[in-house]
Amino acid sequence: MSEGGLTPEQVERVVAIAMDLAREGDTGQLLEFLDHGLPVNVTDPQGNTLLMLAAYHGHAATVRALLDRGADPDLRNARDQSPIAGALFKGEDEVVAVLREAGADLDAGTPSARAAAVMFGREHLLAD
């Protein structure tokens, strides 16, 4: 993000607001932040991306919009969790489908999406 004279505290606050928008699935406002220079793959202190939070909270339209803006579907958080594994864990079938369409790596992270699918009886979501 072009800091444009923002203090580190202000930058931290902007990122926190954007993360909340991703959690809430507020695609319109979130895209405005991106339009004003927020990097699409920005992370919070736990290493979560906007995509990770939108995926985990079941917001398929927000996930799709972030992917359209260049979000990396395979960036993992500090706990080595991938967005698709998080969506599988939460039972967010539509999000899983969107991430698969985007080419998300089913073997990345701990547990991997494949392992998460087996753990939660959701293997059918990863079948070709």
Rank of each mutant, 00 (worst) to 15 (best):
S2G: 14
G5N: 07
G5A: 08
T7N: 05
T7P: 03
P8W: 02
V14H: 11
V15S: 06
V15A: 06
V15H: 06
I17A: 15
D20M: 14
L21D: 06
L21K: 13
A22Y: 03
G25Q: 10
G25H: 10
T27K: 15
F33V: 03
F33Y: 15
L34H: 07
D35V: 07
H36W: 14
P39E: 14
Q46K: 13
N48H: 13
A54G: 05
Y56H: 14
G58H: 04
L66G: 02
L67S: 01
R69G: 04
N77E: 11
S82C: 04
P83G: 10
P83T: 03
I84R: 00
G86P: 01
G86Y: 00
A87R: 00
A87N: 05
F89C: 11
D93A: 15
E94A: 03
E94N: 01
V96T: 01
E101F: 05
A102T: 05
A102V: 05
A102H: 06
G103C: 08
A104S: 10
L106I: 12
A108G: 09
G109D: 11
A116W: 00
A116Q: 05
V118E: 15
V118M: 13
M119D: 11
F120Y: 15
G121E: 03
R122A: 07
R122C: 02
E123K: 01
H124T: 13
H124F: 10
L125F: 04
L126V: 02
D128S: 12
